[in-house]
Design a protein around this nucleic acid. Structure first.
Lengths: 351, 351
DNA sequence: AAGAAAAATGTGCACGTGCACATTCATCAC
DNA sequence: GTGATGAATGTGCACGTGCACATTTTTCTT
């Protein structure tokens, strides 16, 4: 292993001079600098990361901006677990995690974070890096994007892309998900050529893209009708009734239903309340515990998954590599589209 | 940041004593040890990786025992890439990789490794750890297992389990794979209730288990016949003709075929040489480039994958964590059963 | 040419850990 | 009680780097 000492000896200077050259601190005579650089080249010196971090001793503060873990059926536990795993694996003692939870159905909590970090010009509170799940309105996203750009804060988005921003993204291509769902619908339907997509919860570009890709591809492989249903903003018994009302119109017609997010349980419930006789295959998204159980019971027929835990893991890993080792922070990481059936759901559960 | 110094102060002992407790070096009075452990708990101490590596500077030699990367259609490239990724991610300058390739169709090359390491009593050449893909005969496996036990060499097997050995395993449960294949066969067949499994290449407990699980589960969900074909040891044009001969007998009868390893391309070729009119769905194993292409062309209908790259990654990671940080080396890591269709094959390719 | 200012270079300590060696303490035989 | 023995505990250095400060050399001023 080549060290600064070797460089110093080889160039006939002291450690301090080598240090100045390495860090461009100036105050080095041109010819001396040339000699040092030559030695660095010749011996192909690489700084020892461990020594560097030990000496430097800086503690990197990483903010995690994520919806409340319990919301969305507990979905956010998964990427969060992945991040924890990544951090504990690196067991770098110079990383400090600071998690801010927000309510994606009440954007104020999200904006509070943005304001606290950016408006207050609170240099002290600024983190060294940011991991975020930007599942809020485009307007709110833009505010955060500005903040990130202003402070050139190293950031990575997971689950969804941050609008108007070039920061790296770790997640799934929603189009591919829609295509796979269409294929599964085709395999599983037994009657009719018409199918339906159901989008529940919030307006979300990710979900729209899935539904659109489904329709597009379905028409390519089956030339049938696609009913696109959606029911946004709401909850409680009224919501379930409304949903049942929507589904009533198509229950006799559709050969399969694609639920674009993790709410497949609601659709199952609605169909069962309508007392449909025949089996309508349902394809859902994301392996939450309740979804997994419905899948095992045969009340959901397939689930598409996007490796939520790996998303958190890879995002956290990429950010720390950037902060600690100066690795570049550029390319996206795309998750494969995973198909989960009753037969392999157990093998995914432990994940 | 909590350091050993803090622990020492808190427990009222010196750094040396803390060190002895941390590394189980003994020579510590029971009550002292208790105090130290309590302090470690209370302050939730985590060792600083950088200091640790900087300090001990030991180079760990890790042997990798794997079939030639080009064999089996290039399959072994995948786990190998995963291992490389794990090692480079840890960018520890104190890990040295030593790869031994063997020919799984000529066990001598495998035995050569075992002899070189164990018979010669060559303490010097012994590695600090071993990663192996034990895809050889049970006898050969047993020899290596003995060697590992004798030297109590920290080892991890991937892809397949090492027989007569308790070393950790990173790979897939073959039963689950068979079950998923049966479900896919059921979804994809359009006529008849009879199906077939095809096992090519070597006798392999992993493949037998897949085929058996397939049969078992098929009879549960479909009550039809399962033709179990196998054709071992061989290659060249004769081999393809033999295979075609086998398949001729069932071509008019089967509704789907499950190829238990990565040789689905041979089955496709054989069927095409037989000039079968109707489409017989084929379910294969492992995404090799040629398999992926056949899948895209619709000549294979589904592929089951076992995250080969992740297998290598996790095995390498577990071993290094054990060597460098003394983490335990006990539990297996099971890979999920992944279903690959033409629509999501691209999302797996980059893996 | 002498002294001051500026530029260039050198020195020494700290970071947290592992390990070899030094020291202290308790135990027991005589 | 006095060595002798061994167990228990403490001390000090090394690892490679960053950074503050000390020292030397050069340049400028009058």
């Amino acid at each position: 292993m080549i060290t600064v000492k070797d460089i110093a000896r080889h160039a006939g200077v002291s450690l301090g001079t080598v240090d100045r050259v390495l860090h461009n601190r100036g105050k080095v005579a041109p010819d001396t600098e040339a000699r040092v650089r030559e030695a660095i080249q010749n011996l192909s010196y690489t700084p020892n990361v461990h020594a560097r971090n030990l000496s430097h001793g800086k503690v990197f503060v990483i903010d995690v901006l994520i919806p409340h873990l319990e919301s969305d059926g507990g979905y956010w536990h998964e990427p969060y677990r992945g991040m924890e795993r990544a951090f504990s694996r690196l067991n770098m003692s110079n990383l400090e995690l600071r998690t801010s939870f927000f309510n994606r159905y009440d954007e104020q909590s999200f904006l509070d974070y943005v304001n606290a970090r950016c408006r207050a010009n609170d240099e002290h509170g600024m983190p060294d890096g940011l991991l975020l799940a930007p599942v809020v309105s485009p307007d709110a996203q833009r505010l955060l994007a500005e903040c990130i750009a202003t402070y050139s804060l190293p950031s990575i988005s997971f689950d969804s892309r941050l609008e108007d921003s070039q920061i790296p993204f770790v997640g799934q291509d929603p189009k591919q998900g829609g295509h796979v769902a269409a294929r599964l619908a085709k395999l599983m339907k037994d009657t009719g050529t018409s199918v339906a997509t159901v989008t529940l919860g919030r307006v979300d570009p990710h979900l729209r893209a899935r539904a659109e890709a489904f329709r597009e591809y379905w028409q390519e492989i089956s030339s049938g009708t696609v009913h696109e249903l959606s029911l946004l903003d709401g909850s409680g018994p009224d919501y379930e009734k409304e949903l049942a009302g929507l589904l009533r119109e198509i229950r006799d017609e559709v050969g399969a239903v694609f639920v674009t997010n993790a709410s497949a349980d609601l659709v199952v419930g609605a169909f069962e309340s309508l007392d449909v006789r025949r089996h309508i295959p349902i394809i859902g998204y994301d392996i939450l515990p309740q979804n997994a159980n419905l899948l095992r019971d045969g009340r959901i027929d397939a689930i598409i998954s996007q490796r939520p835990q790996t998303q958190g893991y890879e995002a956290a890993h990429m950010l720390t590599q950037h902060l600690v080792f100066g690795e570049p922070l550029d390319s996206d990481i795309l998750m494969p589209v995973e198909i989960v059936l009753p037969e392999n759901v157990d093998s995914f559960q432990s994940e």
